[in-house]
Measured scan of single mutants.
Amino acid sequence: DENEERIRAFALYKGIDPEKARELWERGEINKDDEEKAWREYK
């Protein structure tokens, strides 16, 4: 689903483990601007 892809995109963008990215996502600790930037680059 799209959230999974967004988490993966963010992990790649930040160079972090996707599981770590998922934890940040679930806790609401992902910066929305960074997340959008990562998503645009990923697509």
Rank of each mutant, 00 (worst) to 15 (best):
A9W: 11
K37Q: 14
A38V: 04
F10D: 02
R22S: 04
Y42S: 04
G28I: 02
Y42E: 04
D1N: 13
Y42R: 02
W39D: 02
D1E: 13
I30H: 03
I7S: 00
E29F: 07
E23D: 10
E5Q: 10
E35M: 15
E29V: 07
R27L: 10
D1K: 11
K14Y: 15
A38Y: 06
R27Y: 04
W39L: 06
I7L: 09
K43N: 12
W25D: 01
A9D: 03
K14I: 13
E26I: 13
E4V: 07
I16M: 09
N31Y: 05
D1T: 12
R27P: 00
K37V: 10
K20D: 12
K43S: 11
K37Y: 08
D33S: 10
I30M: 06
D1G: 12
D1W: 13
A11M: 02
E4F: 08
E2I: 14
A21M: 04
K32Y: 10
I7V: 07
E2V: 13
P18F: 15
R27V: 04
L24D: 01
A38D: 03
I30E: 01
E35Y: 15
D17V: 06
E5P: 02
K37F: 09
R27N: 12
E36L: 09
A38Q: 03
K20Q: 13
E29K: 06
I16S: 00
I7F: 05
K37R: 13
R8P: 00
E4M: 08
G28N: 07
N3P: 09
D17M: 07
R40F: 13
E26P: 00
E5K: 06
L24T: 01
I7E: 00
I16V: 05
I16C: 06
G28T: 02
P18Q: 13
E19G: 09
R40V: 10
R6H: 08
E26G: 07
F10P: 01
E2R: 10
E35H: 06
K20T: 14
D33L: 09
E26D: 11
E2Q: 12
K32W: 15
W39A: 03
R40P: 03
L24V: 03
R6F: 15
E26N: 11
A11K: 00
R6A: 06
R40I: 12
E2L: 13
I30T: 04
D34P: 01
E29G: 07
W39H: 03
D17L: 11
K20A: 13
R27A: 13
R8K: 14
E29Y: 08
D17F: 04
E4H: 06
A11N: 00
Y13W: 14
D34V: 04
Y13F: 12
W25N: 01
N31H: 10
R27M: 10
E2C: 15
R6I: 08
L24R: 01
E41L: 12
L24Y: 06
K14D: 01
W39R: 03
R8D: 04
R27I: 07
R22A: 06
R22D: 00
I16N: 00
D17R: 07
R27T: 08
A9K: 05
K37I: 12
E19K: 10
F10S: 01
E41P: 03
P18S: 09
D34S: 03
E23K: 06
D34A: 05
K20P: 01
W39Q: 04
D1Q: 11
E23Q: 10
R27D: 05
W25R: 02
E26S: 09
A11H: 01
E35Q: 12
L24A: 07
E23A: 08
P18W: 14
I7Y: 05
P18A: 11
E35F: 15
N31S: 15
P18I: 15
G28F: 02
K20R: 13
A9H: 03
E41G: 05
E19P: 02
E2Y: 14
R22K: 12
F10A: 02
I7W: 11
E23N: 05
D33H: 08
L12G: 03
A11G: 03
I30K: 02
N3T: 15
E2D: 14
I16H: 00
D33F: 09
I30S: 02
E4K: 05
R40M: 14
G15V: 02
E23P: 01
I30R: 02
E36W: 06
A38M: 06
A38T: 02
E36M: 07
K32T: 10
I7C: 03
K43V: 13
D1V: 11
E29A: 09
R40E: 13
E35W: 15
E36V: 07
A38S: 12
K37G: 06
K20N: 08
A11I: 02
K14R: 08
L24Q: 07
P18E: 15
K37E: 12
Y13L: 07
N3S: 14
E2A: 12
K43T: 14
K37P: 03
W25Y: 14
E41D: 11
G15Y: 01
K32P: 14
E4W: 13
L12F: 10
E19V: 11
L12E: 09
E23R: 06
G15K: 09
E29T: 05
K43M: 14
R40C: 14
F10G: 00
I7G: 00
E29P: 02
L24W: 04
A21S: 04
K43A: 10
E35V: 15
E4P: 03
E26H: 10
K14A: 14
R8E: 05
E36D: 10
E36K: 04
E23Y: 06
E5V: 05
Y13K: 02
A21L: 02
D33P: 04
I30N: 02
N3F: 15
K37M: 12
R8T: 11
L12R: 11
D17P: 14
W25H: 05
N31P: 12
I16P: 00
W25K: 03
K43Q: 13
R8F: 14
R8Y: 15
E19W: 08
D33K: 07
K14W: 15
K37S: 10
Y42K: 03
Y42G: 03
R6S: 03
I30G: 01
G15F: 01
I16L: 09
Y42C: 07
Y42I: 05
R40D: 10
Y42W: 12
G28P: 00
Y13S: 03
R27E: 05
G15P: 00
Y13P: 00
I16F: 04
L12I: 14
G28L: 03
E35G: 06
D17E: 10
E29S: 06
I16A: 00
E29R: 04
K14F: 15
D34M: 06
K14V: 13
K14G: 03
E36T: 06
E19N: 08
E29Q: 10
K20S: 11
K20W: 12
R22H: 06
G28Y: 03
E19S: 11
A9E: 03
E29D: 11
Y42Q: 04
R6N: 04
D34Q: 06
K14M: 15
A11S: 04
N31E: 10
R6Q: 04
E5S: 06
E36G: 03
D17N: 09
N3L: 15
A9Q: 06
G15A: 05
Y13N: 03
Y42D: 03
E41M: 12
E41N: 10
K20M: 13
E23F: 06
R27H: 09
D34F: 04
G28A: 04
K43G: 13
A9R: 07
E29I: 05
L24I: 07
L24M: 15
A38W: 10
P18G: 06
A9L: 08
N31I: 07
G28S: 04
F10I: 15
I16G: 00
E41F: 12
N31L: 10
A11T: 01
L12D: 07
R8V: 11
A9T: 02
I30L: 07
D34K: 01
E26Q: 11
I30W: 10
Y13T: 01
K43F: 14
I16R: 00
N31M: 08
G15D: 07
N3G: 08
K20G: 05
D34N: 03
E19Y: 07
K43C: 15
D33T: 09
R6D: 02
D17I: 04
R6P: 01
N31G: 09
A21P: 00
K32G: 09
L12Y: 11
R22G: 02
D34H: 02
D17G: 07
L12W: 15
D33N: 08
E2G: 10
K20Y: 13
G15S: 06
E19I: 11
E29W: 07
K43I: 15
E4S: 09
E19A: 13
A9F: 08
E29N: 05
A21H: 00
I30F: 12
E41T: 07
Y13H: 04
A38R: 02
K37W: 08
P18R: 09
N3M: 15
A9P: 00
Y13V: 03
F10E: 02
R22T: 03
F10W: 12
E29H: 06
A21I: 05
K37H: 10
E2K: 09
D1S: 12
E2P: 12
G15L: 02
E36I: 08
Y42M: 05
I7T: 01
G28Q: 04
E5G: 05
K37T: 11
N3R: 15
